[in-house]
Design a protein around this nucleic acid. Structure first.
Length: 680
RNA sequence: UGGUCUAUGGUGUAACUGGCAACACGUCUGAUUUUGGUUCAGAAGAGUCUAGGUUCGAGCCCUAGUAGACCAACCA
């Protein structure tokens, strides 16, 4: 029942305004218009969620329209993949449309434009036309063919269509304004000749409409009310409207184009061209490589449709370009999987653990919860024996009190099993640990109901029984790029930032046997490690798991040890741009001073005294930069003035900087500031 | 150097026709926990790009700057 007191983004606001102005809600219609020349990525998901979300909200139809006007780039394979992805995300389109379905209509309209003297056939080279276009600062010059007769234009255009000319030899241009400040209005192309079979129309056409001509007219044909696209099309809106003006019937709905910012994700790239480059250069295994920000890549990695929709919702829609931190995406998938993923145990980096007091050869079947977050999820069998694998990093011969895993002489619980105590280690000649020997409290079995079974111990470890374990390959992924925004550097190519260690393959991991018959749809939490899902490379005799995302790990954060990759947070730039515990006296002064102008009476006197006291610990070098504090920030300047007074008293020599700051203070409109300045 | 757009904690978004800058992620504490997960309680972090102006009052309105993005494909 959360009524929409929630704030609207600017697109929703626009629609609300249109509705308020009398727009018929039954005429609301949207569309998602991909070009089938690549796979959809998380940025497209934003557009999909926006358009289909608007459709759901207003109970309006949303078309899936393939913008297929360039047969040299587009393929059926992409059409199929896009349809699959949109459906997988959970959306159903009203109609499946293609710009190519409207080729005849657009051709007819082009004839109309020619007849009205608003379009002409040009036969210059692309270079010549580019030159005539001028520059953003200089107007263009007219083509020598601009004033051909209507008859001649009609004749040439029909012959273009009939296939009489070579690819690239003739084009149809709109006759608009060669001096427009908007370069797109300088007689833009409507049609070019392309000698290539189209994935739908075959060789029926050899002239193809350009984007600007096709897009708006397709919106109009479909009677799309709000045509939403990304910011780089803002300039195209003028053309979009001009084209519509030429053919618009006032009895019909006139589409409206609006633009929003495309969504970028940190540590990756988001253009089809760049993603394609990653694929063709074999930097990744394909469009659906789990490291790719494509929908198919995320799906293979183990992301759910819900998590991607949630991410779109949380990211919002706006008009400024931005880079959303991947941590938000990771939050979304963890939140979803925490509720639904089955808990299992797997050891990725094993070390052998022998329980010396467990009867030799004995095994037993224990029970373990499928999901503690879901009381109805039930339990599954878990075989136990006296020889186990545990994670190598879960044992240290000796460690500080903050380490609450296994050490010699310390107790920990084996998840869903017994409490054990480290006794001794067996090492090879080089000092590598081969085996850890421990004893178990045989009364402490989980769920047995004994007093010992409910004892509290600090740590709990995951494990697998060696004789029961199954083997699998596990693939762990790190960010594909080492730079937060790899394609934002003018002087460097984004490929230079590729992370060489983005894929880590563990050839032989050990899993509990429950995992033997899993499908690609299943989602698991390998306890204490993260969320995992089966990869499509799996075969009946070789399982391959992908790590979707790790669990949050507050232990890893405390480790001073260098965690070269997988460190989930970027170094240093968090927490207010200043390291914790480094708060200096100067910071304290700034903090107090900020609110200084709001104080009066005793509080003011106290604040002044505090600042003066703190100033004892401030050096001139620290203070000087604050002389440039904006005039508006009066409180801060007063604080700086007070601190300066203390320094001068301590023997700081007056210099030009100080004098300038004093002079500015004396001239200020704020009384307090003037008073403080006068004292000096 | 022309045109267009944008500017709010580290990040992403809010703040209705001017009225105490809010939410989420992230960060940090503490509690709970048979996952160093989850959950719960709390904290820090912003003078809203700068300088002026209008106003009792400006993140919001005006002016001038600054910074970033986009625009000269027979791509979309």
């Amino acid at each position: 029942m959360t009524e929409e007191s929630a704030s609207l983004n600017f697109i929703e606001q626009l629609i609300a305004d249109d509705l308020a102005a009398g727009f018929d809600p039954n005429k609301l219609r949207f569309r998602f218009p991909p070009e089938p020349n690549g796979y959809l990525h998380i940025g497209h998901a934003a557009s999909i969620c926006l358009n289909f979300g608007l459709g759901e909200k207003h109970n309006a139809p949303v078309n899936l329209r393939f913008d297929d006007t360039n047969p040299s780039k587009e393929e059926q394979e992409y059409v199929d993949a896009i349809k699959y992805d949109v459906q997988w995300l959970g959306f159903q389109w009203a109609k499946e449309c293609y710009s190519s379905d409207y080729f005849q209509q657009m051709y007819d309209w082009a004839i109309q434009l020619i007849k009205e003297g608003k379009a002409y056939v040009d036969q210059q080279s692309a270079e010549a036309m580019a030159e005539q276009k001028g520059t953003p600062t200089a107007p263009g010059v007219a083509s020598p063919y601009r004033d051909r007769s209507v008859e001649e234009n009609l004749d040439l255009f029909e012959r273009m269509k009939a296939g009489e000319f070579e690819q690239g030899s003739y084009v149809l241009r709109a006759k608009i304004d060669m001096a427009s400040p908007n370069m797109l209005m300088r007689d833009p192309l409507l049609y070019r000749i392309v000698r290539k079979a189209h994935h739908r129309t075959g060789t029926e056409w050899c002239i193809y409409p350009m984007y600007d001509w096709a897009h708006g007219e397709s919106d109009y044909i479909e009677q799309v009310s709000h045509s939403l696209c990304t910011l780089e099309f803002k300039m195209h809106r003028e053309l979009y409207d001009w084209f519509l003006d030429q053919i618009y019937d006032p009895a019909l709905l006139r589409p409206k184009q609006r633009e929003f910012a495309r969504r970028n994700l940190s540590y990756t790239v988001m253009s089809k061209r760049k993603l394609l480059e990653l694929v063709t250069s074999k930097t990744v295994m394909g469009w659906d490589d789990p490291r790719m920000p494509t929908i198919s890549g995320l799906r293979r990695r183990g992301y759910t449709p819900e998590s991607i929709r949630k991410f779109s919702e949380l990211s919002g829609i706006s008009k400024r370009d931005s880079v959303t931190d991947v941590s938000l995406l990771e939050y979304c998938i963890r939140e979803d999987l925490n509720k639904s993923a089955t808990r299992v145990m797997a050891v990725l980096d094993p070390v052998k653990l022998v329980i010396t007091n467990y009867p030799e050869g004995k095994t037993e079947i224990l029970q373990t919860e499928n999901n503690p977050e879901d009381p109805n999820s039930g339990t599954h069998d878990l075989p136990f024996s006296g020889e186990l694998y545990i994670e190598r990093e879960d044992f240290k011969e000796e460690a500080g009190s903050k380490f609450f895993r296994l050490t010699l002489g310390n107790e920990v619980r084996l998840k869903s099993a017994y409490i054990i105590k480290g006794e001794s280690v067996v090492k090879d000649a080089d000092g590598n640990i081969l085996e850890i020997h421990c004893t178990a409290d045989l009364d402490s079995r989980s769920g047995s109901g004994t007093e010992a079974s409910t004892r509290k111990v600090k740590g709990t470890l995951h494990w697998v029984s060696i004789q029961h374990a199954i083997k699998a390959e596990v693939r762990e992924y790190d960010r594909l790029f080492l730079d937060e925004a790899p394609d934002s550097h003018e002087d460097k190519n984004f490929m230079e930032f590729v992370n060489p260690d983005s894929l880590k393959v563990i050839k032989e991991a050990y899993l509990e046997p429950f995992l033997k018959n899993t499908t690609i749809e299943d989602k698991f939490q390998f306890q204490r490690l993260g969320y995992f899902t089966l990869d499509k490379d799996s075969t009946s005799d070789k399982l391959v798991f992908n790590k979707t995302v790790g669990l949050r790990d507050s232990w890893a954060k405390q480790q001073p040890a260098p965690t070269p990759q997988n460190a989930s947070s970027k170094p240093g730039n968090q927490g207010g741009g200043q390291a914790q515990g480094q708060r200096s006296a100067l910071n304290e002064i700034q903090k107090i001073a900020k609110k200084y102008t709001n104080l009066s009476g005793d509080k003011l006197t106290a604040a002044r005294a505090d600042i003066a006291k703190l100033a004892e610990d401030v050096t001139y070098e620290e203070l000087a930069p604050l002389f440039n504090t904006a005039a508006k920030k009066v409180g801060t300047r007063i604080g700086v003035m007070i601190a300066l007074g203390v320094l001068l008293k301590k023997g700081q020599e007056r210099n030009a900087e100080i004098e300038a700051f004093l002079a500015a203070g004396l001239e200020d409109g704020n009384e307090e500031l003037v008073n403080e300045a006068k004292k000096l």
